[in-house]
Amino acid sequence: MLEDLLDVVKLRFNVNTAAENDKDDEKDEKAENKVEIPKDLAFKCPRCLNMIMTDELVKNLKVCPECGYHSRISSEERLNLTVDKGSFIEFDKDMVSRNPIGFPGYDQKQDELRKKTGLRDAVITGECKIRGIRCVIGIMDSRYMMASMGSVVGEKITRAFEYGAEHKLPVIMFTASGGARMQEGIVSLMQMAKTSGAVGKLAEAGQLYIAVMTDPTTGGVTASFASLGDIIIAEPKVVIGFAGRRVIEGTIKQRLPDDFQTAEFMLEHGFVDLIAERKTMRRTLAHILKLNGYKPAEEV
């Protein structure tokens, strides 16, 4: 009896949210138009090793249709998939790093990457709306030095949290990183303190921080702001961990299981709140923002 009743309630709840989402999604342009079409004809999935035809991959928002691995996408694609069209106002667009320890080749490497990616460093930050709700967003981009955190990444992320605290806005961070940026030496380590301290400022201001862990979230970023979300979401099958898998395998002299340091592993061990698919991420974020009391901004 009670179970039947629960089922009815569940059904209604699902029907209602689904209907609402469909309505909202109609206003959106087709999600698959928001990801870039790769030049290669096929994609070899690093998880299941299947070859996926490019059009199939694009249709599936660059998620492997065989195993569900959520492959890496650019910050621009992520932005298109996540925020209301035309709502993004970028912060600190022109910030570039110096070479604090004078590491040979660092400046040239960055010049090359800037040309290749059109980015100035490994994160974009700004203010946006998601289904009308104002928020601060940061998106790390693994194409730029595996989104390692140096002075620019640290400063932009810190400023984004401080902006959220000052303007009473929630902050959403899409994390991806190989860790601290070795080329900046100890200065990169200190960015962990800066960013984590800034998360504290947002908390003091009573605002929500949602971390969305994408492939790969590791090292000093896992050991700082990425792990400090009030709510931590992960994309399916992505790598999340502190130490590198190969470092650990080298120490214990044996192969680790395939699911070690995955989103699912982190969920099972209690370090992730939920796993959400890319195609539902926007509505998941909007839903969480709403349930935390954030309302769509008045149409002006």
């Binding site: 301290g197 998360v199 896992t222 702001f225 792990s227 502190f242 214990i252």
Partner: peptide
């Protein structure tokens, strides 16, 4: 910090992150 299976299982990243934020 130790790099090992047990350390990952118990959230090495989270433990360090939490300390950094709380000490601040």
């Amino acid at each position: 910090a130790f790099c090992g299976v047990e350390a990952e299982n118990r959230g090495q990243g989270e433990a360090i992150a939490r300390n950094i934020m709380e000490f601040m």
